[in-house]
Amino acid sequence: MELILWAGDFGLISLNLDCIRVTAYARLTKAPVKIKYCRNPYCTYPVLQHESRYVYNYTEIVKHLEKLSYVLDDKLDEKQYGESYVLINMLTLHLNPVLEYLFWQNETNYETLVRKWYSQVIPIPFINLIYPSRRRKLAHEFFDTLFPHQDREAIEITLLKGVQECITCLTTRLGESSYFHGNSYTSIDVAVYSYLALITEIPLPNNPFANLIRGFENLSTFIKRFNCDVFPDVQYDSKYVCRFFGSKIKTNEDDDLSTSLTMKVVIVSAALCGMFFYALSKNIINLTKLNSFIVIDDK
């Protein structure tokens, strides 16, 4: 079986919510899946390829894995199952708009990180510039319909209120225990991790929601523990953005100068190489002379 995921970064297996959920589900049930990354933003993620059959979406993939007897929630009784269902719905209702807001609606996050990350991840030129702006427009439309006549600040406060209620609920429910139900991870743990990790782990410059979540100690330790238990092989990294902007993601203009210095070195050396080869091709520099110089030097 092969699982096709959207690219991952910053210590997360993927930057798509359902991709994280499906991978965690597969790993916890020990389903033999091979992970393959795809960097086409127009595909639906995640995709499970099994014997020339393609299964899309989290729910469908979970159904398919359950058919193959890779079941995660088999130890839950009916009441716990119902409770998981209710909590997952609460997460969807309150945290889906938050993810949308953090990545696409918030101006600072979009300009400093998201747009650049996408332009690096998508390998096709032009598409890597068009896709983020189109996606942002969609997010704007979404917030216009969901919160008509409200400005950015008002939306943020409304979302914060929802997140606070949701997180208080989760931390009361989790309490001191390590798992939401019983002695092992179940689908509710997977869902909680996927949402909270996406909100807290990505170094977005303007993220009041992450600070709110970090304030609850049991949830922070829960995220860390889940990371160690399920994704021990995924190390913190910033694969795409660091390639051009150094190891740190720039947060202000002073950093901008220091990171662009490495860029300058790269550009200058590339230009020198180009000039050198041009000179070689036009016989401005004679390599034989250079060789004889080296040989003479050797003598």
């Binding site: 269902y85 209710v86 909590l87 719905n89 609460m90 969807t92 209702l93 309150h94 209620e165 949701c166 208080t168 609920c169 009361t172 429910r173």
Partner: peptide
């Protein structure tokens, strides 16, 4: 109790969402 208040929020979210 606090956990009952949490239940209210969770179930109200369920009704809103579904």
């Amino acid at each position: 109790e606090n956990d009952q208040k949490c239940d209210i929020r969770a179930y109200m979210s369920l009704v809103h969402n579904v």
